[in-house]
Amino acid sequence: MSRATKEGTFGYLKKFGNYSKDFYRFNGELFFPSLGIGTYKAEPYKEDNYIINYAEAIKTALRRGINFIDTAINYRYQMSEREIAEALNVMFAEKEITREEVIIASKAGFIPLDFPFPDNPYGWIQENILDAGLASKEEIVIDQHCMSPAYLRWSCEQSLRNLEIETIDIFFLHNPETQLGYVDQETFYERIEAAFTLFEELRSEGKIVSYGIAAWNGFLYESDHIEYVSLGKVVEIAQRIGGKNHGFKYIQSPFNLAKPHAYGYANQQSSDGMFYPLMHVCAHYGLTYIGSSPLLQKNLFKRAFAPNVAELMNTGDLSDIASALQFARSAGGICAIFGAVDPAHVIDNAVLAYLPEASPKAVNTLMKGAYAV
């Protein structure tokens, strides 16, 4: 089997019987850890991106019960995907893990360029995207984002090559709201429809299992904001394209102590005409919610947390990072994704696997201090 399976992910979690019983969650198809590992690195043009390597952190995560790996083709000019392959190939060869045990998600939408950073990035786009017939100039927004079906197909197939796997378990359309403000709403949803049509083709070809949208603010804004994305409209598109058995199964967006809108801000309209928070509407439509940026790219830690945060999160003498991760994984999403290059940081974060998640009452208490509903 060339993809994650229910049986494989269940077999994996049984290796960690000393963990808290709620560390793993089941969405009807796969067993997810409530903490996943991501491979995003901000400011990828910086020199340290040429010397870091995620492979050891990935191997450490898999050895510590974290079998959800999140990446994107544009992370570090395709290097993050290639380093995941480096880690997986070693562990597969040594029979430490099987492909069926690992959930792999990647994303398409941003133009990735390639490592090392090209001397002329615009020349790279011209040669590899425009001249190759993957998109027209009009389909590329601000020289960085594209949702043309030909480009998205190329992106998926290139990710498969980078990851050295046959099938991606979750394939996200990456921050599509980037295009809003440059194209009108009608054009935007037409492009979503074309993308989903392609994704259903990729499913039928066995190149992806399921798909979703990974957005930054698109699902979290006010409904009249220029970059607002309506989840209801997106679901209608998926149902129209793929029928009852469509592959649109996942939403990813930021969720953390400073940005808890997905849990507490009623801005998405459900089928009853009422507005609810994103997590609620995801559950209504049968979508699995995955939280990103639980540490807000370290911006949560400009000053120490109040003492009651650790008390509410049951994180005792652990770090503020542990408290933030505990909050992010306790509010209703199936998984919260943290980024880590240093294996020691993965080990520190995996300590949370021994703790029960925080109670709804504790989460709601912190919510009142973080964001007024």
Rank of each mutant, 00 (worst) to 15 (best):
F171N: 15
R153C: 02
I140M: 10
H174W: 06
V141Y: 13
E139Y: 00
Q185F: 02
N162T: 07
E157S: 07
N175F: 01
T187W: 06
Q185T: 14
G133S: 11
H174N: 15
Y182A: 12
D143C: 12
L163R: 01
Q185Y: 08
R153W: 00
G133Y: 02
I168A: 04
W154G: 04
G133R: 05
L160N: 09
E139A: 09
G133K: 03
F171Q: 14
L134Q: 07
A132E: 15
F188S: 02
I142D: 15
L152Q: 10
Q158K: 14
D169C: 12
T178P: 01
L173R: 15
D169I: 05
T178E: 13
E190T: 04
I192L: 12
T167L: 05
L130M: 13
D169M: 10
E190Y: 07
H145S: 08
F171T: 04
L134S: 08
H174L: 11
I170G: 08
F172W: 06
R191G: 08
E164R: 15
S155A: 14
A194L: 10
I168Q: 00
T167Q: 11
E166S: 07
D131W: 00
D143K: 15
C146S: 13
Q158G: 07
Y151T: 01
P176V: 04
L152F: 07
F172S: 08
R153F: 00
S136M: 06
L130Q: 14
T167W: 01
C146P: 00
I142A: 15
E186G: 07
F188R: 08
P176A: 14
L134G: 08
D184S: 12
L160S: 10
I170D: 12
D143T: 06
N162K: 03
C146D: 13
V183N: 02
E186D: 14
L163D: 06
E190L: 03
F171P: 14
E139R: 05
A150N: 07
R161F: 00
S155T: 00
R153D: 04
I168V: 11
Q185C: 04
S155G: 04
P149W: 03
P149A: 15
E186C: 05
D131M: 04
A150Q: 05
G181I: 01
C156G: 06
C156L: 15
A195G: 12
S155K: 00
F188Q: 07
I192H: 12
E193H: 09
A132P: 13
